[in-house]
Design a protein around this nucleic acid. Structure first.
Length: 505
RNA sequence: GGCGCUUUCGUCUAGUGGCUAGGACACAUGCCUCUCACGCAUGGAACACGGGUUCGAUUCCCGUAGGCGCUACCA
């Protein structure tokens, strides 16, 4: 087992959009697999037919495509350990349920959900285990003939795992070390339901991981309490020597308040918790996604990677390749991490900076067009190079530089009061005349000519430039003035200047 | 309630018996400057508490408290 090829899996159930915590779990699995030259498997755990949601599977796949996380095998990827959808593996599970039954590791139980509810209401902390199972209706308390008769009569039943009490079960967790629990506190978990002929998570999970030759199970901490049960199951099947190694990841917590990050937190607090936008087919509700909100996949990945793991150095900006190279399960933190999306905004800013002007311009183009403006990509590229460092999201570019496309219709009152003085109208008229006379309207030449004029007249640099800015932009913001006038061109510059003079007087 | 995991600045974290407890986000201030940003610089800010072990504990052990998870014929 020491030299088995590394194989890990991400196995969501298609019950809705992919939760951001799930994205992180998948990411860690991916880093781990790629670092070890192993395989990354995509399995669908749809053993609960009641919770199946239309479109969830495709949503999950699309999320990983957007993020750039690639699977080696699984649903939609092929591979020779399939099928990879648990609902298509009924016969396999049935076979292994039978093995357990034959070896006295499990038993058949007829107690209905209603009967169990009643029992739980009657008895405090009722648990279906070694101390109570003989009082219940199952193949341990009934004769073989009775059991067969009930089955023949069409009674529904479940198969329960027969947990032997009084045993110390040890799980060797790659992140937490040795975790020991007493088997007496475990209940006889339901492994299989005759009603839909499907196993529950626990059985399906162990059988699939074994058959798919999974070597490492990297999953959320919510599974830690059932890890001992899983160890017992591997043992019951006699698969001890190929049992995967476990690593239980800390959970992602709400940014404020208590509890783990839930699907409802996102839009309540004004940030997404899903990679992509999600339209719930049942409720019709719309949840925002990182993609639609303007986050770059690199930023989401980098931020998530560092939430619960740290390479131990001071480097925070890391590409997928670097993350794969540096990732280390042993350096994963044990305590839950609050999902503070503020830092992700900073990552987004950094990744916008890293991208080429061309790439950002391409993302900006549809936004500009949505504002009813037609623009050349080359023009956008120039604007982007001046402005991209000032924003955290591409869509913020519009507010930051709409003056490149649209002349101001009104002038910000506060700025006008501060920057438009009694001499301004005369000075701006002079400036317009000066600029009009320029053959060469390049940024350098404007700069040269205007400075000479300011000096000659003895004007203040600030009074001229700020009034000029008010005229072209309508408010007190934006890059260097000639980076504006030079780009919008001579004609537009003069028009804006003269209009400001007539409106502001 | 039971069981398990966990606990360093507001947040994410580094640290592995001796350090002025480091970095990043956020925040504040300053610089730059034709504005607003960006950027740069500086600053405030943490070892949950109580016992041990030790010459010495943020670091090891125990307890308490807090946080989180599980406790379904859900995953």
């Amino acid at each position: 087992m020491a030299d088995r090829k590394v194989r890990v899996r991400f196995a969501p159930s298609p019950t809705g959009p992919l939760h951001i915590g799930g994205v992180r779990t998948a990411l860690y699995n991916y880093f781990f697999a790629k670092q070890h030259g192993g395989d990354f498997i995509f399995r669908i755990e749809d053993t609960d037919s009641n919770r199946f949601v239309e479109g969830a599977e495709e949503y999950i796949l699309e999320s990983f495509r957007w993020l750039g996380v690639k699977f080696d095998e699984g649903v939609s990827f092929g591979g020779n350990h399939g099928p990879y959808r648990q609902s298509e593996r009924r016969d396999i599970y049935k076979k292994y349920v039978k093995v357990l039954l034959e070896n006295d590791k499990a038993y058949i139980a007829f107690d209905s959900p209603e009967e169990l509810d009643k029992k739980r209401a009657e008895i405090d902390n009722f648990q279906y285990d070694a101390s109570t199972r003989l009082q219940m209706r199952n193949s341990l308390s009934m004769s073989a003939e009775e059991v067969q008769a009930l089955i023949d009569a069409g009674h529904q039943y479940v198969v329960r795992f027969k947990v032997e009490p009084g045993e110390k079960v040890v799980v060797n967790d790659l992140i937490r070390g040795l975790v020991t629990i007493d088997s007496s506190i475990l209940d006889d978990k339901v492994l299989y339901k005759s009603a839909d002929e499907l196993p529950t998570y626990h059985l399906a999970n162990i059988v699939d991981d074994h058959l798919m030759e999974v070597t490492h199970v990297i999953r959320g901490e919510e599974w830690l309490p059932s890890a001992p049960l899983h160890v017992l199951l591997y043992r019951a099947f006699g698969w001890d020597d190929t049992m995967p190694q476990f690593a239980h990841l800390s959970l992602l917590l709400k940014p404020e308040g208590n509890g783990k990050l839930s699907k409802r937190d996102g839009d309540r607090l004004g940030f997404p918790v899903f990679p992509l936008e999600w339209h719930d087919p049942k409720s019709g509700a719309l949840s925002s996604g990182f993609r639609e909100s303007g986050y770059l996949p690199e930023a989401v990945i980098n931020f998530l990677a560092l939430l619960g793991w740290n390479p131990g150095d001071d480097v925070e900006l890391m590409s997928m390749e670097q993350l794969i190279e540096k990732f280390d399960l042993a350096k994963c933190s044990k305590a839950g991490a609050r999902f503070d999306y503020k830092k992700m905004i900073w990552f987004n800013h950094e990744y916008i900076l890293q991208k080429s002007d061309r790439e950002i311009a391409e993302k900006f183009l549809p936004i500009v067009e949505a504002h009813g403006v037609k623009a050349e990509l080359s023009y956008l590229e120039k604007i982007v190079s001046l402005m991209k460092g000032r924003v955290n999201f591409v869509h913020e570019l519009w507010d930051a530089c709409s003056f490149y496309f649209i002349a101001p219709v009104e002038y910000d009152e506060k700025t006008a009061k501060k920057r438009w003085k009694e001499n301004s109208a005369r000075q701006m008229t002079e400036l317009a005349d000066l600029l009009e006379g320029l053959e060469d309207f390049s940024i350098e030449n404007q700069d040269h000519a205007v400075h000479a004029w300011i000096e000659e007249k003895g004007y203040g640099m600030g009074e001229i430039m700020n009034a000029f800015r008010l005229a072209l932009v309508g408010e007190g913001k934006g890059p260097q003035m000639f980076d504006i006038s030079g780009l919008i061109g001579k004609e537009e510059t003069l028009a804006r200047l003269r209009r400001a003079v007539s409106v502001l007087a």
